[in-house]
């Protein structure tokens, strides 16, 4: 399971077009066995882009009905950075409940999870999983996958920003000397206690450096981060 998620992450990092991103959302939907995976973003000048598995009928319907104005998911995510489980949002208004029914009539499931991301200069994005499930199963799914989903959301956003020419993923990630040392010691086979001792820092500090390096390298976990650091030539052992 992990191995294939790494592959999806890698296709995402290699994406050069919106069609590639579309392919990634479809692969993630199949990987997680959910009904839908959607990533959309609004750039710093207010233009909207998206990739995802919602039917074109539902996307058109959403726009035609102007659901953006009443969608509790949008209210629960706008200008925030904490993910939301859809059922925990306020669906008490009649229009909101009607929208959810309409969504389900268009092939959406009853459960959703959306991660909001705030990028630079007003850019923002939403990464959503939607499916049909019982409450307890959905909570268990989120509990088990929240970290990976957060990582995927941010990798999708790095790609979106690259498309916006905010950054360039083709360049190697910028790690500070301390992060490079941490990754190098791990790549040499040291455990965290040894690496921390070598660097004369605490293990907790080392774990923070490793987590920061993991994010910059676009990796899912520490092992993957070491592999990516070696593969991209960021470190040499």
């Amino acid at each position: 399971m992990k191995a294939s998620l790494e592959q999806h992450l890698s296709s995402l990092q290699n994406a050069t077009t919106l069609e590639d991103l579309q392919g990634v959302t479809e692969a993630l939907r199949d990987h997680y066995k959910t009904s839908h995976v959607v990533y959309h973003w609004v750039n710093s000048i207010g233009e909207r882009f998206g990739a995802g598995t919602y039917s074109p009928e539902w996307v058109d319907r959403y726009l035609e009905k102007d659901y953006l104005r009443l969608d509790p998911v949008i209210f629960g995510c706008f200008q925030r950075f904490t993910p939301v489980i859809w059922k925990e949002l306020d669906w008490s208004s009649k229009p909101a409940r009607a929208m959810l029914q309409d969504a389900m009539d268009h092939g959406l499931g009853n459960q959703g999870y959306t991660i909001p991301i705030r990028g630079p200069a007003g850019q923002f994005a939403l990464f959503t999983l939607n499916t049909q499930a019982e409450d307890q199963d959905w909570h268990a799914f989120i509990d088990a996958n929240a970290r990976d989903l957060m990582i995927l959301a941010h990798e999708l956003n790095k790609k979106a920003l690259e498309f916006e020419q905010w950054g360039d993923a083709a360049t190697t990630p910028m790690l500070s000397p301390r992060e490079l040392s941490a990754m190098t010691y791990l790549a040499k086979g040291m455990n965290r206690a040894q690496a921390a001792a070598e660097m004369t820092i605490s293990e907790h500090t080392l774990r923070v450096y490793i987590e920061s390096a993991r994010h910059k390298l676009g990796a899912l976990n520490t092992t993957h981060a070491v592999a990516r650091a070696l593969a991209t030539g960021v470190i040499i052992v």
């Binding site: 500070s176 301390r178 923070v208 920061s212």
Partner: peptide, 23 residues
């Protein structure tokens, strides 16, 4: 992953590491 006080003003206290992760 956004602007923070530690990264903006105190990276000399973090071994020069820009601490950056959604986690």
């Amino acid at each position: 992953v956004g602007q923070t006080m530690v990264n903006d003003h105190f990276s000399h206290l973090t071994g020069g590491v820009t601490i950056e992760s959604p986690l």
